[in-house]
Design a protein around this nucleic acid. Structure first.
Lengths: 391, 391
DNA sequence: ATCCATTGCACAAACGTTTGTGATATATAG
DNA sequence: CTATATATCACAAACGTTTGTGCAATGGAT
């Protein structure tokens, strides 16, 4: 039999039970038509919460200083409305209380997180990690944080990373696509959001966003030209998957230079591989069997070039006397391998820096006009190819 | 002459100007003692704001569905209070409106950002970037983002990065200290916050936080032992700066093994360098001049070991016939250099993974008990040292 | 018909900031 | 002394969520 008292009319008669809600008995006063639950703890023990070890907030400082939250906020942000004395006093207090502004709350109200997102295929090779390093340095100079995701060369992973990042978390995105990525609808879907996106190194030509490119075509031309100048006639070229813009660019540079030298390109000298060890050695062995003999191999990357050098050496083939080998990228191993690798210096760190700069510019200026930047590289003559003859 | 009407008493007499505030004239009604400014635009044109291209929020969905924000939130979070039908209906609507929850707002109310901070000396060497890769993979598996900072081996930069990250931005921190860092007050200052910190690779022994360590002492012992077994008598060791725990550990492992073999350590065989090229070659040249001759050099890192190999080769010294060279770390270049480098495989990626795992565990369980984990490595015999003799 | 339990939703506070604007005290001019 | 300007501060809304709890309708048991 309910002996509860109605909080409104203060009567104990005509009080009926009105169900159990979340484990607690509810009552209903027929007189004042009021539903209620018997609450013992007086509305959250908020005062005890005070001793909770939360970081100090503006509210804490305001209470300590005897001013309003507004005043504290303005004082710390040097707003002219606040007098020099209060400003100083509050800053002292804030320092004393070890105040650190809550960036999350700031982000919420300012609608900006000072954070850049980066999606990159991989971090374990210096080629990519140095790009990231460039990005990070530029970002940090402008007070931006960098959150990174590795796609591990998986298209699906790229998509899920993209979605995870674009949830209001970042002010801008830098992306270098995976080898698998040949469609770009996932990017298009995000382009209507107000978050600028910049592609770097591996880009999709037809998207209307900014791109930072390595000078692939010109680089491939330069490498090819140097091989030609050194007397090579039959230059094989090892490329990546056919659908990659990078592959197309380098092939174009290669062909352009052959044409300039009036050498008829031989399709058998062009092979497309997926970067696996086996596919590389298979391609090389194919060339070795050819007649007339191949006298130079131009490889898509330094990594594969080093592999080729080791493979040739294991077969007793002299480099560069019998075959010239050139790489692309200028990774550190190219300096270590013997003979030292002739290559093209793709300035990876500069690419990262440029990408970050372009992105920051777009974030700050809110300018949407896409921009394309080509980072020039440089040919590096080392020992794995013969020196060009004087012309 | 002011002809304004008081909004309160509706009179036009006895209205005085009362200053200019933010460019607008203010008035003062002597009758009702009321201050006011003439406002033309009726309290912010908020309705126009609606067409603003902000991302859809719960409020938008609520309005479209004709329910409350609470209901939408609960529907999308599968709260049992909401009926299956409404739940489904709202999810449809949300998908249609391309709703993405605002992570910032969620973070604010949940007091957690699902973000890990990483401070690492450098990203351009695979040694560190592979650690980062390990961290990133584990974090991403658990749905955590990773924000990175490079300290560039600068202590001051480490400190400023630390402060920048600890502002409520991250749920936990992973740090690998710089070479310069020998005091740890900046870490201690942050330990009372509720953000767990885990040190990896380069750690401060006396801090009461979790540490992930490479098996330096044991590794150095193993390398030394293998050199001894191959017949070396005078093993020189190149170490980093003296105050680094890593230096101490490796020196200890080296000395321990000498003692076990009853070889009296020669202080001249131990040198401390700062990793610069010059300091390394200087140390090596010093050893080369010694009598009795040094027959093995054990180098603090693979990078310096490769340098040493190139230096010795340039002097025509045969490796390993005249001098054995061993490295530490197992970087990729060790496989490329000739002769291939004997080294100790510090499992960098595993260190990163373990660090992330320990940190995540602490974040989730709120357990504060520090944990120390040793990641075992393995000796790798290659060509730059003689094979151990059968014992 | 009366009482109670369950279901399904809404209200409002809270997270920690920033910021537009109101309000008071004081200074200055006439 | 009166009328206006300035300096300094406070109020309250807003950012987009989550969540404790209130309330009404429905249905079942007595």
């Amino acid at each position: 039999m309910p002996r509860s008292r109605c909080p409104k009319c203060n009567k104990t008669e005509r009080i009926l039970k009105s169900g159990i809600i979340r484990g607690k008995q509810r009552f209903y006063c027929k007189d004042c038509n009021y539903h209620f639950t018997l609450v013992h703890n007086t509305r959250k023990s908020k005062l005890e919460n005070n001793s909770n070890n939360r970081p100090t907030s503006l509210k804490d400082i305001a209470k300590a200083a005897g001013v309003s939250i507004t005043t504290v906020s303005r004082a710390l942000n040097n707003h002219p409305d606040i007098s020099k004395e209060t400003r100083h006093e509050i800053r002292q207090l804030a320092d004393g209380m070890n105040y650190q502004p809550n960036i999350i709350a700031q982000s919420l109200v300012n609608r900006s997180t000072s954070t850049l997102g980066v999606i990159i295929p991989n971090l374990e090779t210096t080629f990519f990690s140095s790009m990231l390093s460039g990005i990070q340095h530029i970002a940090s100079q402008s007070g931006y944080r960098v959150v990174i995701c590795q796609s591990d060369e998986s298209h699906l992973s790229e998509i899920s990373n993209l979605q995870a990042l674009m949830n209001n978390m970042i002010d801008g995105l830098l992306i270098c696509h995976t080898l698998e990525t040949s469609t770009f609808d996932h990017i298009r879907m995000q382009m209507n959001r107000n978050i600028p996106i910049v592609q770097f190194y591996r880009v999709a030509e037809d998207l209307e966003i900014s791109k930072i490119l390595a000078d692939d075509e010109n680089g491939a031309s330069q490498v090819t030209e140097n091989l030609l100048k050194s007397g090579c006639k039959r230059i094989a070229i090892l490329l990546g998957p056919k659908y990659l813009p990078i592959t197309a660019k380098r092939e174009a540079g290669y062909l352009k230079m052959l044409k300039k030298w009036k050498i008829k390109p031989d399709p058998k000298l062009v092979k497309y591989v997926n970067f696996s060890n086996d596919s590389v050695t298979e391609a090389v062995d194919g060339w070795l069997a050819m007649k007339p003999a191949v006298d130079a191999i131009f490889s898509i990357s330094d990594k594969t070039a080093v592999q080729i050098i080791r493979h040739l050496k294991s077969k007793g083939i002299k480099i560069p006397q019998a075959i010239n080998v050139a790489g692309f990228g200028n990774e550190y191993t190219g300096e270590i391998v013997e003979p030292k690798l002739t290559t093209f210096n793709v300035k990876t760190k500069e690419i990262g820096e440029a990408a970050a700069r372009v992105l920051l510019e777009q974030i700050i200026s809110k300018e949407k006009q896409p921009k394309t930047i080509l980072i020039k590289g440089e040919f590096i003559q080392r020992e794995s190819t013969r020196k060009p003859k004087k012309m």
